[in-house]
């Protein structure tokens, strides 16, 4: 379709690989962070530097480097933030599901804190993503909100996890809060794919997903670059929020070792 793809300079061609290299770097850092506790002192800082740096460069690439989209024009540029934001939300909420499941299998304040952190950050990214989607839809489809399957599901997903966060705020006892929110987290996560299909069948309106082969490689590169930037930020946010949650949990649940042993027998 777009034959001008072939006219890229070799310099530009080489640059198309950059996002993949950065992505590998970010993933490696996240991996080190997860598996080597000692490295956590610096890994998050490195991720923060990469994330902020890339996020600063991102508008530059997406707003000026990439040519406007053929049909949508400049409005299409919103997709370079909208799509990765929604991806990040899905990653965070999947993490929430994993943490909830882990908590029910083996009680641990680590998985509880991780569930809290991932849900909140997931809702943040989801809310931004959905808002951007609506902003994009107005000039493209003529309305901020069309009730198509993906939009509807995304909106309900936000409500589901806002309810989850509200529940966490409304239970004072840390043990109960952890168990009950884990149950709600699992119900919510299982419901998401079900919801998506049911809304789709309900509306029976199709919208095929675009995939890299039909999109200009330049655009794919920028999309990947943006996703990498947001992934680094996502990791930093979740980790920091996790530290906040853990600290709060430590305040809430003192350990029995703190008590002197003065046992007595009748």
């Amino acid at each position: 379709m777009r034959h001008w793809t072939l006219t890229y300079s070799s310099q530009t061609q080489a640059l198309l690989w950059l996002p993949m290299i950065l992505l590998a770097l970010v993933l490696a850092l996240i991996g080190v962070h997860v598996f080597d506790p000692k490295a956590r002192r610096w890994t998050w800082k490195a991720l923060a530097v990469i994330g902020v740096g890339m996020a600063v460069g991102q508008p530059f690439l997406a707003l000026s480097w990439v040519p406007p989209e053929k049909y949508m024009g400049d409005t299409g540029r919103i997709l370079y933030v909208h799509v990765p934001q929604v991806w990040m939300a899905l990653i965070a909420l999947t993490l929430n599901f994993g943490a909830s499941l882990a908590f029910l299998l083996k009680k641990s304040w680590v998985s509880d804190a991780l569930a809290e952190a991932s849900a909140e950050v997931g809702v943040l990214f989801g809310a931004v993503g959905v808002t951007l989607g609506a902003l994009w839809a107005k000039p493209t489809w003529g309305a901020y909100w069309t009730w198509d399957a993906r939009l509807t599901t995304a909106a309900i997903l936000l409500v589901v996890y806002s309810g989850y966060l509200a529940l966490r705020k409304f239970i004072e006892d840390p043990e109960k809060r952890a168990t009950w929110s884990a149950v709600v987290g699992i119900f919510a996560a299982v419901d998401i794919p079900v919801l998506w299909f049911s809304v789709k069948w309900w509306r029976s309106m199709h919208q095929t997903q675009s995939n890299p082969s039909t999109v200009d490689p330049l655009m794919t590169a920028v999309l990947r670059y943006s996703a990498t930037a947001f992934l680094a930020l996502l990791a930093v946010f979740i980790y920091q929020r996790f530290l906040v949650a853990s600290a709060k949990r430590n305040e809430e649940v003192a350990l029995p070792e703190a008590l002197p042993a003065v046992g007595g027998t009748p």
Partner: peptide
């Protein structure tokens, strides 16, 4: 399940529909 949870939380009257309605959507549709 959700009523059992909400019955023991503060603000249960708000919490139950907030948690329940979105989850019920698929079967409701």
């Amino acid at each position: 399940v959700y009523a059992a949870i909400a019955s023991n939380a503060r603000a249960r009257d708000v919490l139950l529909p907030l948690l329940l309605f979105p989850v019920l959507l698929p079967s409701l549709l």
